[in-house]
Amino acid sequence: KEQQNAFYEILHLPNLTEEQRNGFIQSLKDDPSVSKEILAEAKKLNDAQA
Rank of each mutant, 00 (worst) to 15 (best):
E18I: 11
F7A: 08
L11T: 05
G23F: 09
K29N: 12
E19F: 09
P14N: 11
E37G: 10
L11V: 06
T17K: 05
A42H: 00
A40E: 15
Q49N: 09
Q26I: 10
K36F: 09
D30E: 08
R21K: 09
Q4R: 05
D47H: 08
D47W: 06
F7V: 12
N22Q: 09
S33Q: 15
F7R: 10
Q3S: 03
E2G: 06
D30A: 12
A48Q: 13
K29H: 12
R21N: 01
L39D: 00
A48E: 13
V34K: 05
H12G: 05
E2I: 02
Y8H: 03
S35N: 08
N22C: 04
A50C: 03
T17C: 01
K36W: 07
I25G: 02
S27E: 14
A6I: 04
K43C: 02
L13Q: 03
H12C: 04
T17A: 05
E2Y: 03
D30R: 12
A50D: 11
A50H: 13
E41L: 08
A6P: 06
K29G: 03
N5M: 15
Q3N: 15
E41M: 10
E41Q: 10
A6F: 06
S27V: 11
I25P: 00
A42T: 01
D31I: 07
S27Q: 02
K29E: 10
Q26S: 10
A42V: 02
T17Y: 06
L28I: 05
N46L: 01
K29P: 02
E19D: 09
V34S: 14
L11G: 08
I10H: 00
Q4W: 11
V34A: 14
N46V: 03
Q3I: 03
I25Q: 06
A40P: 02
K44G: 11
E18Q: 11
N22P: 00
I25C: 03
N5C: 04
E2F: 03
N5E: 15
I25E: 03
F7C: 04
Q3P: 15
E37W: 11
A50Y: 15
L28A: 05
R21T: 07
S35D: 07
E19V: 11
K43I: 07
N46W: 00
E18K: 09
N46G: 03
S35K: 06
S27I: 10
E37M: 13
